[in-house]
Design a protein around this nucleic acid. Structure first.
Length: 420
RNA sequence: CGGGGCGUAGUAUACCGGUAGUACGCCUGCUUUGGGAGCAGGUAGACCGAGUUCGAUUCUCGGCGCCCCGACCA
């Protein structure tokens, strides 16, 4: 993409109404725009990152048998009354509205009820199970206080998968498969080293749940980490009995702050019973379906990456989620020296080679272009200038390591085609 | 929801009971081109409402909005 055509611009200064590093850098770089507290727009650069993240999530969910669908955001009151969760006393984050003729509707904050009802229309036999269904969709939660930039929003994207199994054993197998898939996802988006499967409370549905906590000082949760075994315990369930049950040695646990980037938990038959999702087993018995719920917030993952990977010049995107692979910067000097011509040619070659490239073809000073490249944080910066032309080479710089090389065109492409 | 802070051009800020200044941005021209260039000219602003006052952007009250701490986060 030509940067001349990009409708967003970078900013030198961060807005004063944002303190969170993720929001400051994402706004300065033109990745997101704040509409109101806890509500953010994803601009072209930000959407590219978000799509990279959801793409990875999708691949891993499909790999374990997930089927993607898209449920509505507007939800009917009836289905929620069946589970007893329509009341604001039970779920206090509801956004509700009223249709013209008076019917009440809710904006989805989660989707157990409508999906369970829907699945019931298609599943009636043990031969129809198990099923694993997910979506990547916008959730609405009327949080008392939005905070930490895009980490805690009132409107946010969420991947939510729901498992429908015949038995507790069958459920348990998938639960562990999904936990493994989650670890692969966090590995692939660049958070693997810092993300721990964390034992946590199960809320109203079960005795426990598993959170995926990424170590970060601005995290909302306090967790106790066993770095060697790569597991953690949330402070909310940190008792001697829990540690005993999990065979964890208290003396090896380290207190840390974590951002909850994912959460999986058993639902048992709580919703299948309430909404009449039953199946006929091989012996003809009518049995409630055993369910589980599995969430990841792609926007929160994006915010976490920014919190963790930046320097005083800007963001440092992991290659797997970067909006572009290469930032081609033409430092055009005097006209007639052919810098622009060479850069144009190189841009065409990069695009033809299928390398995602942001091409800074703007009329701007070198300082501004280089500062923008650092702020936007694309992994590889390639400069064409009079200086590089004098050396009959191209300059390639790695945003993360700062390593700079002068390479010929062929070597440049060899370098860029190598997966890192 | 309790506590605290804050609302001035697109952004960041300053001053003031007599309608606002600076920087960046943006526009025009010339110069400049490896770390947010220089000169000249131009563009653009007091969250809303009520009150006090001859006069309110400034003081008072209310509303709305934003941030932070706490609580909450199925």
């Amino acid at each position: 993409m030509r940067q001349r055509h990009l409708f967003t611009k970078t900013r030198k200064e961060a807005p004063t109404d944002e303190v969170a590093k993720n929001a400051q850098l994402l706004i300065r770089g033109g990745f997101v725009h704040k509409e109101m507290a806890g509500v953010y727009d994803y601009l072209p650069l930000g959407l590219r990152v978000l799509n990279k993240i959801t793409g990875i999530i999708r691949e891993e969910m499909d790999k374990i048998g997930g089927q993607e669908l898209l449920l509505s955001a507007l939800q009917s009151k009836e289905v929620w009354e069946k589970s007893g969760r329509w009341s604001d006393g039970v779920i206090d984050v509801w956004f509700k509205s009223t249709l013209t003729h008076g019917a009440e509707v809710g904006l989805g904050n989660t989707h157990e009820e409508p999906l369970t009802a829907l699945v019931g229309e298609h599943v009636s036999s043990y031969k129809d199970l198990p099923r694993y269904i997910y979506q990547i969709q916008t959730k609405f939660r009327n949080e008392l206080r939005a905070k930490s930039g895009i980490l805690r929003a009132r409107e946010f994207l969420m991947k939510d998968l729901y498992s429908f199994s015949r038995t507790e054993e069958e459920f348990r197998l998938f639960y562990e498969e999904c936990a493994a898939a989650y670890l692969r996802i966090f590995e692939r988006v660049g958070l693997g080293e810092l993300t721990y499967r964390t034992f946590a409370s199960g809320g109203p549905f079960s005795d426990y749940s598993d959170e995926f906590q990424t170590l970060c000082d601005v995290g909302e949760d306090t967790i106790y980490v066993d770095e060697e075994r790569r597991v953690a315990v949330n402070k909310e369930v940190y008792t001697d009995k829990t540690l005993d049950d999990l065979h964890l040695d208290k003396t090896r646990l380290v207190e840390k702050r974590g951002i909850e980037v994912g959460n999986i938990f058993p639902l048992g038959t709580r919703f299948s019973e309430a909404l009449g999702l039953r199946y006929r087993d091989a012996d003809g018995n009518d049995t409630p379906v055993v369910m589980g719920s599995y969430g990841i917030g792609p926007g929160r993952v994006m915010g976490t990456i920014v919190e963790l990977y930046s320097d005083n010049r800007g963001i440092i995107w992991p290659e797997s989620v970067a909006p572009f692979r290469v930032h081609l910067v033409a430092l055009a000097g005097e006209e007639g020296k052919g810098v622009r011509t060479e850069a144009e040619k190189l841009y065409t070659l990069l695009v033809d080679a299928g390398i995602e490239t942001l091409y800074d073809d703007r009329e701007a000073s070198p300082g501004e272009k280089l500062a923008d490249a650092d702020l936007i944080g694309i992994p590889w910066r390639v400069v064409v200038s009079e200086k590089t032309q004098a050396q009959h080479a191209l300059e390639i710089k790695n945003r993360k390591t700062g390593a700079t090389e002068m390479l010929g065109e062929k070597e440049l492409f060899d370098e860029l085609k190598t997966e890192n």
